[in-house]
Simulated assay, not measured.
Amino acid sequence: MSGMVLRLACTTALAAQAVLVPAPAAAAPDPQRPGAGPQRTVSQLLTDLQQLYRQAEKATETYNATAEKLKRQRAAVARLDGELARTRLALQDSRTDVGRLARRQYQSSDDSLGPYVRLLLAPDPQHALDEGHVIGELARAQARTVTRLTATEKQRDILARLARKALDTRLTLAEQQQKQRDDVRKKLADVERLLASLTPAQLAAVAALEQRGVTEAQQKLATSGSLPAGRLASPEGALAVRYAMDQLGKPYQWGAQGPGAYDCSGLTSQAWGHAGRSIPRTSQEQWQRLRRIPLSELRPGDLVVYFPEATHVAMYVGDGKVVEAPRPGASVEVSPLASNPVLGAVRPDQAPVTEAR
């Protein structure tokens, strides 16, 4: 989104590649062509483009969130399947033990005489007592085995129900993910159609208007004292920044987490992952689950989150700038912090650092 239309003259082809769906049969009507309906001002065109990109990125982050849930659900299904398999083996062993103990007790007992009569008639009463003790131990062992068998059967039934439920959830998430993928592609196609409808003069005018808005927003942050100064990165933050900066020039691709392409949260999550800290995958989760900090306390490696719905994220690199994967058709780049409407900032790590003097 930063510098969103500075390269719009070549963005149409790039957007078509990123969308991965056939181009529309007919472009949207040219607003400057007679009979094409009401003409839109440059400001309206910029607003339309920004809204379309924002909708596309929101759909992308929704897709990413479902993809993360699906990944966790696949792991849960595999774990439950493994537990169920082990429980079935334990159940088979318990049943074997029960059968063996039952046969041993049957062979060691004499049902024709009661225990007291056998003891009185035995040539060696002490031997009979010992034998009775052994038989009693066998009976108690059998009782324990039967109890274990019953518990294992219950556990098997519970695990079987959980495994079926987990599989149903996985299938539901997969279907949901497919619908969200289609939604992203549709919204990106809408962007492509609008870009294809603009003349070179319109593209240049929209680019100039956007750049002017970014410059004014950046100056406002600076004069308000919201931009930080002189803060050093933590060791982990420095590693995250280095990784993100090494990705400069790689293309934006929705749902991508590298190494060849990234979307906005794919870049930030991978950068911090390579720094040794796992953070949530999506911009919304990063905003919700990481510690929030004032903009004035930003240090390199911290994340800046944009828009009320937290649908875009970038990494602060210092000097009032961020590194980001901005949008379809663009590449990972360094942009002014105020390239988009700022929601707030979060810090993935808690390592203390010394401020620069």
Rank of each mutant, 00 (worst) to 15 (best):
R40I: 14
T41E: 04
S43F: 12
L45H: 06
L46Q: 09
L46R: 11
T47G: 08
T47L: 08
T47N: 12
L49I: 03
Q51P: 00
Q51T: 06
L52Y: 02
Y53D: 09
R54C: 00
R54A: 02
E57D: 03
E57S: 01
K58G: 12
A59Y: 04
A59R: 06
E61S: 03
A65F: 07
A65E: 12
A67I: 03
E68M: 11
K69F: 07
K69M: 13
L70N: 03
K71T: 12
Q73A: 03
R74I: 15
A76G: 03
A76P: 00
A78K: 10
A78T: 09
R79G: 14
L80Q: 15
D81G: 15
E83F: 10
L84E: 06
A85G: 07
T87P: 11
R88F: 10
L89N: 12
Q92G: 13
Q92S: 15
Q92A: 15
Q92R: 15
D93R: 15
D93P: 05
S94G: 09
S94P: 01
S94H: 13
S94T: 11
R95L: 11
T96W: 07
T96P: 00
V98C: 09
V98I: 09
R100E: 13
R103W: 07
R103K: 13
R103V: 10
R104M: 12
R104V: 05
Y106Q: 11
Y106L: 12
S108M: 12
S109Q: 03
D111Q: 09
S112F: 01
L113Y: 10
L113V: 11
G114T: 05
P115D: 04
P115E: 04
Y116S: 11
Y116L: 15
Y116R: 11
R118H: 04
R118S: 08
R118C: 06
L120Q: 14
L121K: 04
L121G: 05
A122Y: 01
P123K: 04
D124F: 00
P125M: 03
P125C: 06
H127A: 09
A128E: 10
L129I: 05
D130N: 08
D130M: 06
D130G: 01
E131R: 02
H133G: 05
H133K: 01
V134H: 13
G136S: 10
E137R: 12
E137Y: 04
L138G: 15
L138T: 14
A139Y: 05
A141T: 06
Q142R: 13
Q142Y: 09
Q142H: 10
A143S: 14
A143N: 12
A143C: 08
T145W: 04
V146I: 12
V146S: 07
T147Q: 15
R148E: 08
L149P: 00
A151V: 04
A151W: 02
T152R: 05
T152Y: 03
E153D: 09
E153T: 10
K154H: 15
